Each structure stands twice: as C-alpha cells, then as structure tokens.
Measured scan of single mutants.
Amino acid sequence: TVKFKYKGEEKQVDISKIKKVWRVGKMISFTYDEGGGKTGRGAVSEKDAPKELLQ
C-alpha cells in the first residue's frame, strides 16, 4: 500500500493498482486504477516511497 496526499487529502492505494511510475526530481509520481475506468494520480517523496514502487 502506498500512502500519499493529493490536493490536501490523505489517500492510499494498493501497489497492485499502480499502472505507471516515474521520477520527478526527489518525488516519485504515479498513476493508478481508481476503478470505474478512472485513472488517479499521486506522488510521494523518494524517502517515503515503498521499495516496490522504486523497482
């Protein structure tokens, strides 16, 4: 599970739902399947990112 803040809201998403991951400076950005055909997005700092996300 990845915990992150998006627009001031605390969120979390299961690693299995993450589609795409990329690095922006010291942040790790990602998109994930929100269900219902929607794609969500989020970002975590490199130090807070789970190891599975960095692979």
Rank of each mutant, 00 (worst) to 15 (best):
K3T: 14
V13W: 02
I28T: 01
F30H: 00
A43R: 15
G36Y: 10
D33W: 08
K51N: 11
T39H: 08
T31C: 08
K5R: 13
V44G: 00
F30Y: 01
K38W: 06
I18K: 00
G36N: 15
E10F: 15
G36D: 15
E46K: 09
E10G: 05
G35R: 04
Y32R: 00
Y6P: 02
K11E: 02
L54M: 07
D33Y: 07
G40S: 08
I28C: 02
E34P: 03
F4G: 01
E34W: 06
F30L: 01
R41L: 08
I28F: 04
I28Q: 00
A49C: 12
I18A: 02
K7P: 01
F4M: 03
V2R: 01
K26A: 14
W22N: 03
I18H: 00
E52A: 12
K51G: 09
G42A: 06
A49L: 04
G40N: 06
K47W: 10
I15E: 02
G40A: 10
I28E: 00
T39G: 04
K51I: 15
I28L: 11
K7F: 10
F4N: 01
I18G: 00
Q12H: 12
L54E: 03
K47C: 07
F4W: 14
S45D: 15
V44T: 05
K17E: 06
R41C: 11
K17L: 13
K3L: 11
D48C: 09
P50G: 04
F30T: 00
G37K: 05
R23A: 05
E46R: 09
V21R: 03
E34M: 14
R23N: 04
F30G: 00
Q12R: 11
K11Y: 11
V2K: 01
V44K: 01
K3E: 05
P50Y: 02
L53F: 06
K17S: 12
Q55I: 15
F4Q: 01
K47Y: 11
L54I: 14
G25P: 02
G42C: 02
G37L: 04
I15K: 02
A43L: 14
K51R: 12
K11T: 06
Y6G: 03
R23H: 07
V13K: 01
K3F: 14
K7D: 08
G37T: 05
T31R: 03
W22F: 06
E34R: 10
K17D: 11
E34T: 10
E10A: 09
I18L: 07
Y6D: 08
S29G: 11
D48F: 11
S29A: 15
A49Y: 04
D33H: 06
L53Q: 01
E52S: 11
A43Y: 14
I15R: 03
K5P: 05
I18V: 09
E46V: 14
S16R: 11
G25M: 03
K26N: 15
D33R: 03
G37S: 06
I18F: 03
G37N: 07
L54G: 03
G36V: 07
S45N: 15
K47N: 12
G40V: 06
E34K: 12
D14R: 07
Y32H: 02
E34I: 15
K26F: 10
V2S: 01
E9R: 09
L54T: 08
Q55D: 14
S29E: 15
V44Q: 01
T39K: 07
R41I: 11
I15Q: 03
K26G: 12
G36R: 07
K20P: 01
V24N: 11
G8K: 04
K47L: 13
K3A: 08
V2D: 00
E10M: 13
E52I: 11
M27L: 13
I28N: 00
V21T: 06
I28K: 00
F4E: 00
K38M: 10
S45Q: 13
F4R: 01
K11P: 01
G25D: 06
I28A: 01
V24E: 14
E34D: 14
V21C: 05
Y6C: 06
